[in-house]
Design a binder for these strands. Structure first.
Lengths: 129, 129
DNA sequence: ATGAGGCTTCCAGTGAGGGGAAGGTCAAGA
DNA sequence: TCTTGACCTTCCCCTCACTGGAAGCCTCAT
């Protein structure tokens, strides 16, 4: 398979696939013409990576997950631990965003949004009392 | 005021303040020795920027907000519009994260997390049925 | 005179790729 | 056989909002 084929079959852009090779996540063979030559296992790994990234795991997390996936003697404890850490980070981000949302939402609802210059949003940002 | 003073009074790192000058958000004067020389209005602007950034506005948003802030004839409508757009982006991010959270949460709770290699998380990521 | 700490500029790196140039390769149609 | 167009390669720069560090100047206290 050439890169275009794995790209359409995995849903990942060719650029991303080359990048994943660059950073050592996959190691496709090369044809005599220099083209990357992907096996089914490469496609499988790329799909794995795509799903893990879609869940917000970092590239380094993915590296660890791939290693665990390929380690037949892994303990599911290790995977769960990584996932729980990631879950905690997601929760933290959600809380941060929620706090921003609430504050900004209050400001927005207190602003008339008309043609006059008086604006509680700017007033708050400027620190005025 | 030197940069160290505005840094401690605004809570922004000196590096960040220099960066804000680089990209034209502030324009502090210079002393004869080449040191940046900040007026109270500069400090005020930096505090404004710090608060806007803390609410998640991008630098370009901040540029617009500062311009609106300094435009005495602005319409509060323009500010509110910007804030509402930002609010929508925040909501989208929260929804994305929440979806990740739910999916990952289910996987985590279905994983025993013991010393055995069997792991629903990896199974799901690998696309196995 | 020396040392500490503050200031300056410039360069490089972060994460996870994206855009695009310059050039090699391949298969199909005229 | 030639050409066209699609595909592939590497390479370098760009993103965003900073952050770290090096090398060197300035100031003040001892």
């Amino acid at each position: 398979m050439n890169i275009g084929d794995v790209s359409s079959r995995s849903g990942l852009p060719a650029k991303t696939i080359r990048y994943y090779e660059d950073i050592g996540l996959i190691k496709p063979h090369r044809s005599t013409n220099g083209y990357r030559c992907f096996a089914e296992t490469d496609l499988h790994k790329l799909a794995f990576l795509g799903r893990a990234r879609a869940l917000g795991f970092t590239i380094e997390d993915c590296r660890t997950l791939m290693a665990l996936y390929e380690d037949e003697s892994r303990a599911s404890h290790d995977v769960k631990h990584l996932a729980l850490e990631h879950l905690a980070k997601i929760e933290e981000k959600i809380a941060d965003l929620q706090a921003m949302h609430d504050t900004l939402g209050e400001l927005v609802s207190s602003c008339a949004g008309d043609s006059r210059p008086d604006c509680p949003i700017l007033k708050d940002l400027s620190g005025e009392e």
